[in-house]
Nucleic acid binder design. Structure first.
Length: 290
DNA sequence: AACAAGACCTGCATGC
DNA sequence: TGCATGCAGGTCTTGT
């Protein structure tokens, strides 16, 4: 599922390939994904030049020279493919296809259709619903001070806190699990109990986990140009995600006594963590795991 | 207001 | 083999 590093990698690839080219033809092969695709799409971008590719959180922003921005969210199964002639046959879940002045074909493929397309005036970007309340990017300056303030009086789980795009943009289930692991913080503790030192450690871990993923994504960029555009999780090895019952990779917890990596449900999402390494700060106020 | 849970959707793994 | 079931997750909506 595309989180910030995947979206960032896709944006970098698209930026190399698309900036300066025109959309010579574009078709939507269904009227809606998660939401209806606007009537004005793709009419308004035909024969328009792509000026810039940007990212905000998990959203791709395709900025056109005519002051319009196409907003793309990949949902959970969305992929962007770039084909050379002769174009392969359109597949079942290829919902939007565009031909470019470079001769290439851009395809949006999304089996689960949780993604969406929108088109707005570029000047309306900041007031756009999804961005108006969106929290800062993980690499923004002053993130530590901001998170410390934002976490005061918060009584939800730390896991939910970090998944909330209004708190911090771009993190999804996998990267939250991994970041919490590397900062030794329990997913079930309350944000309000975080100390400044905890926040420092957390921010460091978030950035490190994201940077590593972006770096391994960068090495797959060449594939993005030439093959099927598949940008998964870059053959990444997670420390805890998906490793229920396995031994914690970096602490000396006894797997016989601790059952290794635990899997619990939080807000309907799977959380993976090492209960030995990831201590709850202020045990008495921690939320009960479900 | 804050938080949790449900709905959306399809492909895949598992079990019978 | 083939069917039924459960699970995965990002965001919005609904419920508490």
């Amino acid at each position: 599922m595309p989180e910030l590093p995947e979206v960032e990698t896709i944006c970098r690839g698209l930026s190399q390939q698309l900036v300066g080219t025109r959309i010579t033809d574009c078709h939507k092969h269904r009227q809606s994904l998660r939401f209806p695709i606007p009537e004005s799409f793709p009419k308004k971008i035909i024969n328009k030049k792509i000026a810039k590719i940007d990212r905000r959180g998990k959203y791709i922003l395709m900025v056109f020279e005519n002051e319009l921005t196409v907003i793309i969210h990949l949902g959970m199964s969305g992929r962007v493919l770039l084909n050379e002639k002769p174009y392969p046959k359109r597949e079942k879940h290829d919902h939007i296809t565009a031909e470019l002045s470079s001769g290439k074909e851009l395809v949006y493929r999304d089996p689960r259709r949780f993604g969406f397309f929108d088109i707005i005036q570029s000047s309306d970007l900041k007031s756009y619903k999804a961005f108006k309340k969106m929290g800062p990017e993980p690499f923004d300056e002053n993130l530590e001070a901001y998170l410390y303030e934002a976490s005061r009086h918060k009584t939800c789980s730390l896991k939910s806190f970090l998944l909330n795009q209004e708190i911090i943009a771009g993190l999804g289930n996998i990267y939250v699990c991994e970041s919490l692991y590397w900062s030794n913080l329990s997913p079930i503790m309350k944000p309000a109990d975080l100390t400044k030192a905890n926040i420092t450690s957390l921010v460091k871990s978030i950035r490190s986990v994201l940077n590593n993923a972006i770096q391994s994504g960068g090495s797959t960029l060449k594939d993005f140009r030439t093959s099927d555009g598949s940008l998964g999780y870059f053959q990444h090895q997670w420390a805890v995600y998906g490793r229920k019952g396995e031994a914690c990779p970096s602490c000396d917890c006894d797997i016989i006594k601790t059952s290794g990596i635990q899997q619990i449900q939080q807000s309907g999402r799977s959380t993976f963590y090492c209960a030995v390494r990831q201590k709850v700060i202020n045990e008495g106020s921690a939320l009960k795991k479900k």
